[in-house]
């Protein structure tokens, strides 16, 4: 089903957990740190971490332009937490100079659910999948989205339902961390689309 290999962007963040989930699903996985490695992947996971750090390292490693080009060409991609921020069209209240790829037409607020002491675990109902564990760590909040975006799961954290898993064409964005749990359901959904 999967055109190998799948890359995990390995500049900073919880790379190891994504590699373990994908390897556990029998997929050939590459930790991507160079443009050469990025050229060779059939799909990419952008992990959790600090989006400002990953953005900076995308520039210094020379991968920013190539990744932008591959995303425009429809490279299948799954972004979790910081990865969702990098794939978003705009960042609400971020740093003035913070950029994102604009692959998914959502506006996200960094740490939109609060700082670390507000980080939480809950259960998320995903369309067509059912219940999956949702681990939210200084998670970004999707505040608005275009009609091109499919909302596959929402969570109500006291202020009304907010999308927490979205898809636009080949790009998937997730504000929680499926890689920190025993469930590989989100990764399987993504792989089925590659």
């Amino acid at each position: 089903m999967v055109a190998a290999p799948i890359g995990v962007l390995a500049l900073q963040g919880d790379v190891r957990e994504h590699v373990a989930v994908l390897a556990g699903l029998g997929v050939e996985v590459v930790a991507v740190r160079t443009t050469q490695q990025l050229s060779d992947v059939a799909g990419l996971v952008i992990p959790g971490g600090e989006s400002t750090t990953i953005a900076r390292l995308l520039e210094t490693s020379g991968m920013r332009n190539l990744l932008a080009e591959r995303l425009r060409d429809g490279l299948p991609v799954l972004g979790t937490c910081a990865g969702l921020i990098l794939l978003s069209q705009s960042i609400v209240d971020g740093r003035d100079d913070q950029w994102s790829f604009g692959t998914i037409e959502v506006d996200v607020r960094r740490n939109g659910f609060g700082r670390q002491i507000a980080s939480f675990e809950t259960t998320i109902q995903v369309d067509g999948v059912g219940a999956v564990p949702g681990v939210f760590i200084r998670a970004p909040k999707i505040e608005s989205w275009s009609a091109k975006v499919s909302v596959l799961a929402t969570h109500d954290h006291g202020t009304g339902p907010t999308p927490v898993l979205v898809r636009q064409d080949a790009a998937w964005g997730c504000s929680f961390h499926p890689e920190l749990t025993d469930s590989s359901a989100i990764h399987e959904l993504f792989l089925a689309s590659v």
């Binding site: 959790g48 002491i117 939480f120 809950t122 939210f136």
Partner: peptide, 25 residues
Amino acid sequence: LTSDSSVVGSARVKRGLADMLRGGV
């Protein structure tokens, strides 16, 4: 336990932030 039955301060969210800092300074 918070009002919407989500849990804060679990070992997983505490260790999880450390996981997110990996590879960093």
